[in-house]
């Protein structure tokens, strides 16, 4: 590897720009590819897959040199809207799973630092908070408040972003009403299909910690088995 290639990878990691290192395993020749880059349609697909699923991809080498594609992705981030009880185990479990967690809640009594040690808190209104966080395809957004005036602005920003996961806590009835509101706000059916509600895999969770497990499991599934 050329020193300047390594330097460029580290620079992309530093500025949170996803990049793929393509190595010809026969010659050792290397290229750096960003989303949309690639010499052929097959290569662009390999690059997109490596970035999206965050795994290395090796071509079989039957029709040309064997190429190894290694993604260097920005950190996974989870943005939790609502500093409610479930947010406490959710932020702990998500942190263990490798996510940088930010909890958004403009209600100061909820988003108290002593309730969430070591977690980034934002007291901005959810839409403003998500705009300033800058959602990308490595972000998951989960709303927990059940309150349309907090959840809905967050969802509207999330739906206009590339976030790989959007989920909402709340009953089926609440969720149906939420989807009707988003539809009225101009979102298409394809947008609404991105919203997981009620959020979490159906594993019979009862306690807040168990609900947090089911949410992180569903986020993991969306990340690894899209």
């Amino acid at each position: 590897m050329k020193a300047e290639t390594l330097e460029a990878i580290l620079a992309d990691i530093g500025r949170k720009r996803p990049v793929v290192l393509a190595t010809d395993l026969d010659s050792g020749a290397q290229r750096l590819l960003h989303g949309g880059d690639g010499e052929t349609e097959a290569e662009r697909a390999d690059v997109a897959r490596a970035l999206r699923v965050d795994i290395c991809v090796t071509t079989d080498g039957d029709s040309g040199p064997q190429i190894f594609y290694q993604p260097f992705n920005p950190p996974l981030r989870l943005i939790v809207v609502g500093a409610v009880h479930i947010a406490q185990p959710l932020s702990a479990i998500a942190t263990l799973a490798g996510y940088e967690v930010t909890i958004v809640d403009p209600r100061e009594s909820f988003a108290a630092a002593e309730r969430f040690p070591g977690v980034t808190l934002s007291l901005e209104w959810p839409d403003a908070a998500l705009e300033s966080i800058g959602l990308d395809q490595r972000c998951a957004v989960v709303t927990l408040t059940h309150d349309p005036k907090l959840d809905d602005p967050a969802l509207q920003v999330a739906l206009r972003s590339e976030a790989f996961f959007i989920g909402c806590l709340g009953s089926r009835k609440t969720h149906a009403a939420r989807l009707r509101r988003l539809s009225k706000a101009g979102f298409a059916d394809a947008d609404l299909e991105r919203v997981h509600g009620p959020v979490g895999l159906p594993i019979g969770s009862r306690s807040p910690a168990e609900i947090a497990v089911s949410v992180v499991a569903q986020v993991t599934q969306a990340l690894r088995k899209p």
């Binding site: 190595t23 795994i55 290395c56 090796t58 190894f68 993604p71």
Partner: peptide, 16 residues
């Protein structure tokens, strides 16, 4: 620099 590029069966460290 050494990089795991391919694994078969159970191996302790993933590609990359």
């Amino acid at each position: 620099l050494a990089t795991v590029v391919k694994t078969w069966g159970s191996s302790p460290r993933p590609a990359g």
